[in-house]
């Protein structure tokens, strides 16, 4: 059984929801990524989404763009992301890691080589923003053959037919993008999210994560009440930006802990 599935099964048994923080690998420096990942786990993260930086992050707002630029300026690459995962796995074999990024670094490596290396290094799932279901049937098969969960985005604009198409290829969880826009946008309408979730649940038994625009414990709590997982990204990147390398782990831990408390209080 995949680490992602067993995490959700365990949380389900406990009546808790998954907290999935996102950080960009190599931001602000490769040396800080693994300590930040451990800090996220200590703060109550159930799954970590690790961003693979790309030169042209079309679906991301300014915050994650800046994180990608900082990471690339310091020489981060897909190969180095695998090395970071290996280092993290030396002391943590439980927390699932999902790589999130764009198609081209994977295309440059080759899907098969990528899947083998990701699996070997201890990655559990892969979310490629610009691989929609119609372009990723073969990719999904390669992922699954290597024991990786292909994770797909669903949007407020997704039709029922498209939800079904994604559900057919996906495993692990599906990620509902809670608003039209890029990452880090403002104002999330919890009511609108709640109204869309039944249509998704009708097409898939997979857990549904919700992200984009979740910035505080209160919103995280309200999303936790209706979804299976809460994804928080840009807000954490902002915290890293505000911190020094010495204070980043403690500050991120405090932020993510407060989000965790918000979710647990709502459950």
């Amino acid at each position: 059984m995949s680490r992602i599935k067993s995490s959700f099964d365990r949380l389900n048994a406990q009546g808790r929801k998954a907290l999935i923080p996102f950080i960009t690998a190599g931001d602000p420096d490769a040396a800080l990524t693994v300590p930040l990942m451990h800090a996220l786990v200590e703060a109550g993260a159930d799954i970590i989404e690790l961003g693979v930086p790309f030169s042209d992050p079309m679906a991301d707002g300014p915050t994650i763009q800046r994180a990608s630029e900082r990471a690339l300026a310091k020489g981060m690459s897909l190969r180095k992301v695998f090395e970071l995962v290996v280092t993290f796995r030396a002391t943590n074999q439980e927390t699932p890691i999902v790589l999130m990024g764009y198609a081209n670094p994977i295309e440059a490596m080759g899907a098969e080589v990528f899947a083998a290396a990701a699996s070997k290094s201890g990655v559990d799932g892969v979310l490629v923003v610009d691989y929609p279901p119609e372009e990723s049937a073969e990719f999904s098969v390669a992922m699954k053959q290597h024991g990786l969960d292909p994770i797909f985005l669903l949007a407020p604009t997704s039709t029922e037919e498209r939800i079904a198409g994604a559900a057919k290829l996906a495993s692990g969880y599906v990620y509902y993008v809670s608003l039209k826009g890029v990452t880090g946008s403002a104002a999330l309408d919890v009511g609108a999210v709640a109204a869309r979730l039944p249509a998704i649940r009708e097409k898939t038994g997979l857990p549904v994560g919700v992200g984009f625009g979740i910035r505080d414990a209160e919103t995280a709590g309200r999303i936790a009440a209706i979804a299976d997982a809460v994804v928080v990204g840009s807000r954490i990147i902002e915290e890293i930006e505000k911190s020094t390398p010495e204070t980043a782990c403690a500050n991120v831990k405090a932020l993510v802990s407060s989000i965790r408390r918000g979710m647990d209080a709502a459950a």
């Binding site: 198609a103 691989y131 119609e134 372009e135 949007a155 993008v177």
Partner: peptide, 21 residues
């Protein structure tokens, strides 16, 4: 029908844009 010129072209965008396309 899916926008491919041999192996090229296609529809590589995030889910939000697909219905618009």
């Amino acid at each position: 029908a899916k926008g491919h010129f041999g192996p090229y072209g296609g529809l590589f965008v995030s889910e939000t844009l697909i219905p618009a396309l």
